[in-house]
Simulated assay, not measured.
Amino acid sequence: MAIPSLPEQTRTPPSPRALERFNTAPSDEVGQTLLTCLNSPRWADRIANHRPYPDIDSLLAASDEAAYDLTPGDLAQALAGETLPVLPEGAYSAAHTALSAASAAYEAKFGHAFIICLDGLSQAETLNHVLAGIRSRLANDPEEERVVAAEELRRLARGRLVAHLRGAGSRAAGHNKAAHGN
């Protein structure tokens, strides 16, 4: 699950030194790191092969562009690497039951785990956001949901990349099981 991060305006941006390390790291190391941000070799290769980036904004723009260019097969592969968001500690059992039921319906309809980016939300907002999101998105047709899921993947990848560069790993890193063992 995307662990809620601090609101956008209060987040500490990655340091120029972090970008320098990213730009100069061995390709295989960068590739593996990028795959923990988004399970798409095509996306990871595009980001890695366009190094060096002059600044963080350029790297994030490249990340967004590469995510927008995912083919349906790339998208399916990236979605396969995701897991259902985990509710925050202390969520009541009825919420777990509701999320499990909605998740089963979602996976049956769309063939992949429900994903949602929770960056910028407080712990208190997470539960309602996840449950409202999954319920509303169940009304989507498959093509409409593909577009929404692709946008959520783009946002997750961006947040995970920033988290990696900040050295925060799992803080805003989302809910990719490959990255975090979920």
Rank of each mutant, 00 (worst) to 15 (best):
E145S: 13
R154A: 00
D64P: 05
L19D: 05
A163P: 01
G120I: 00
M1N: 02
L121A: 03
E82P: 11
L87W: 06
A66F: 04
A149Q: 05
R46K: 09
E8L: 10
Q9M: 11
F110M: 09
L59H: 03
G169K: 12
L6M: 04
E125K: 04
C37R: 09
E143K: 04
G181S: 06
F110Y: 09
Q9K: 10
M1I: 08
T97P: 00
D64N: 03
Q77I: 06
V162F: 03
I134N: 10
A163W: 00
D69N: 05
F22D: 07
A44T: 06
P26F: 07
L121K: 12
S93L: 11
I134T: 12
L138H: 06
A78Q: 10
H112D: 11
T10Y: 10
S63H: 08
A18M: 07
P88S: 09
A113P: 02
S93D: 12
V148I: 15
E145F: 09
L34Y: 00
P7I: 01
I116L: 13
I134F: 00
R11K: 09
A163S: 13
R155K: 11
D28N: 12
A124M: 02
I56G: 04
P16D: 09
R17E: 15
D119G: 15
P41M: 03
Y92N: 00
A150Y: 09
P13E: 05
Y92F: 07
T36N: 12
S93I: 07
D64E: 12
A76F: 03
L87M: 03
G73R: 05
Y68I: 02
D45R: 10
Q9H: 14
S27T: 15
L127E: 14
I134C: 13
L34F: 00
V130K: 02
E145Q: 14
H50N: 15
L75N: 06
R171F: 00
P16W: 12
G120K: 02
L127V: 07
L6H: 05
T36V: 02
G120A: 04
V148T: 13
R155W: 01
H164G: 01
L79E: 08
P16T: 13
F114C: 10
R11V: 12
S15D: 12
L153N: 03
L165Q: 04
R158V: 00
L59P: 12
A62V: 09
R42G: 01
K177Q: 14
A101G: 14
F22I: 03
A18C: 10
L87G: 04
D119L: 13
G181M: 11
S136P: 08
P88Y: 08
S58F: 04
P85C: 04
D141T: 01
W43E: 02
L118M: 15
F22V: 10
V148R: 10
L35M: 11
A139F: 01
V86M: 11
L59Q: 11
A67Y: 06
I56F: 15
N176T: 00
K109P: 01
L121V: 09
E29H: 06
A48H: 05
Q9T: 13
V148Y: 06
A61L: 13
H112W: 07
N23D: 07
S136A: 14
S122G: 15
A62L: 15
T97R: 15
G81Y: 01
A104C: 08
A94G: 00
N49L: 12
T83I: 06
D45T: 08
